[in-house]
Amino acid sequence: MSFRRRRPPGARGGPSDALTTDPADALAPEALPTPEPAIVRDDGHLMAAACDGDLDAFNLLVLRHERTVFTICLRLLRDVQAAEDATQDAFLRAWISARSFQGGSVRAWLLRIATNRAYDLLRVRARRPAAVLETEAAEIEPIWSTQSAIESPEAGALRDELGIYLERALTALPEDQRTVVLLADVQGCSYEETAAAAGAAVGTVKSRLSRGRAKLRQTLIDDPTAAELFDRYRRSQHETVDAPATRGRDSDDE
């Protein structure tokens, strides 16, 4: 009674003391056998369980983050098979080195492992001709980000066309800027997450991001066709701001 019980979040405890004010103790295994559906376990708890060898907990993390990890691997490698290999390898490595997780964002930690793996593969394949993303990506189903819901159909169509130019411009970015832009702007990581995933300081991330964005903008407006599309896209954006939100991409076929 007098000593303080210390128990990792995922560990099984013995019979708990009769009276306790700690709400976590109310969820002792004896009291409530695995209240899994009721409680959404956050990444940190799942990670702690994974450190104790709980594969199910780890696989929940895999399910939660595999799309993000796969997407960034695909953008870096521009090859579906290679992206799948890198993603699988990244999760295997994450499982092996789960104990080395230092806290913070699990997603950032996974993305760091995955981008490192993808860049390793990129360097190995450096001599091979790079596959083009648009042909490779056609094999798999794109999941459009939620932003499309508030765009006009015209803006959506323009954005799709511009996306091809943008993907190309991304591949031309220096590696450090590309990583940061993909993490922060494409995957929506915070500065802190991006810094952790890129292994850089937050200040470095900010300046890489700003330079990367500026370079992408310049690449778009340097190409005559892209510049015209870009101009129309910007004008459609201004309209969208005033117009009520139109949703139609999912229901209507254009």
Binding site: V69, W95, R217, I221, Q237
Partner: peptide, 28 residues
């Protein structure tokens, strides 16, 4: 222009993998 660029980046698609990457007990 920068804002439109970032908006385009936000709108780039996410890709659903063809299979899941959960580890089997054997793999683990």
């Amino acid at each position: 222009e920068l804002r439109a660029t970032v908006r385009l980046l936000h709108g780039l698609p996410q890709y659903a993998p063809r299979r899941s990457f959960t580890l089997t007990p054997e793999q683990a």
